[in-house]
Design a protein around this nucleic acid. Structure first.
Lengths: 218, 218
DNA sequence: CTTTTTAATAATGTCGATATTTTATTACTG
DNA sequence: CAGTAATAAAATATCGACATTATTAAAAAG
């Protein structure tokens, strides 16, 4: 375990709290409040907040402190649309470049997702399901072999988190989950068959369908 | 003019200094040194450095301070490869979505670049040329209309800056500049003709050729 | 009663100081 | 003389305190 300074620790917690919605969109982030919650002084806090500003999760106004970035339908559409295109790019490259270990990783992640999905849904543990879900998609795009592209992808995934949580809650115990699961099977088949255009079409749909559901919720 | 705090001011200067190569790749960034140069205390400095860490221009090691991110041939290839794909994506969308104002903006930027290129090359003002160059390409991709995609593009452009400076210096007064200029004319023609695949092929080449030159320099 | 002005309260941004940790130097030992 | 241990020097990370600025509340004027 890497020894982290308090700025790094508070960054991690603060980021989770913003992404999970503990701090609502647009909410003011007062120093006194944050000091209390994370048990650190202002300087590590300001470092963490500065980093979240670069990640576009927090806004800063000179002499007026920090606040959580607002959400909007326009941003939702843009993020999901861009994600769909980037993910498609990653998938195409991964199919071109992926080797045996890549294929095995996909099968393993798909198995883990499928075998735990029903239980986690019954428990209502949406975050655990989302983690397995994300690991499955990550196993696919990992084959693209581009650090930069994967970083861009991760950034967009994180920026989408606040919107995705709405979708997860809305669809808890809903039929959309089963549809989602079916799409995974189709995707695995297309990817392992090295069918680039089919895989890209499937993965774009897989991302854009939740976007359309969310547009009606905002 | 927006009133900025010292962290924002020092961030701007420090970023420029890293991108321009004033601080070399891998170099240790000592606080005493930075305090002297930017005339601020450690806390605004740490905020700025924290942001540069997120931008992947600076690395941090716990209790061992900050240093400029190293450069490598592998990173160069990855950045330029990814840039080529993202730029291609932007260009395709821009051609699909661009309107009259977009076309006019491209013609204007191309004109400004072409009319100043010879003079700036003679003066050896490579940075001014690069600025016009970048404004030209930005005028094209602006038509894609996606804030997120443009942000990703800008991030990759900035990450490529340190490598690009090598290319600029290497090609000062060289024939490659004229080839580069010719590629712009072809690109304008293809874009205004709304020929997506031709435009994408041209812009990919336009980015990848310098990458191949640079691979021999590192 | 609304608007403006003034006072108070609170919050932000920066610095200097300090404890802790790393790095460099010197001394020691096999 | 190389390698290691002890010491000295330097650098980092954090806090508390203070000056500046924004926000809120109260008072005064129209």
């Amino acid at each position: 375990m890497p020894p982290e300074n308090s700025a790094a620790k508070v960054l991690h917690h603060l980021k989770q709290d913003v992404l999970a919605g503990y701090f609502e969109a647009g909410q003011k982030l007062k120093m006194s409040q944050l000091k209390e919650r994370y048990q650190v002084g202002v300087n590590p806090l300001r470092e963490a907040l500065s980093q979240l500003v670069v990640m576009q999760l927090v806004q800063v106004q000179d002499q007026r402190g920090y606040r959580v970035c607002p959400v909007s339908q326009a941003e939702l559409i843009d993020i999901y649309d861009t994600r769909a295109r980037i993910e498609s790019l990653c998938v195409g490259l991964a199919i071109e470049r992926g080797d045996d270990a890549w294929e095995a990783g996909i099968v393993a992640a798909a198995y883990r997702l499928q075998s735990n999905a029903a239980l986690l849904q019954a428990n209502g543990d949406l975050q655990a399901w989302e983690q397995l879900h994300q690991q499955f998609h990550h196993a696919i795009v990992l084959g693209c072999g581009s650090t930069e592209l994967l970083r861009v992808r991760l950034h967009l995934y994180e920026k989408a988190s606040r919107y995705r949580n709405l979708w997860l809650q809305h669809n808890a115990g809903h039929a959309a989950f089963d549809v989602n699961q079916m799409e995974h099977e189709q995707l695995v088949t297309a990817v392992l068959a090295r069918d680039i255009s089919a895989s890209q079409a499937l993965v774009q749909q897989h991302i854009l369908v939740p976007s359309q559901v969310l547009q009606n919720l905002l």
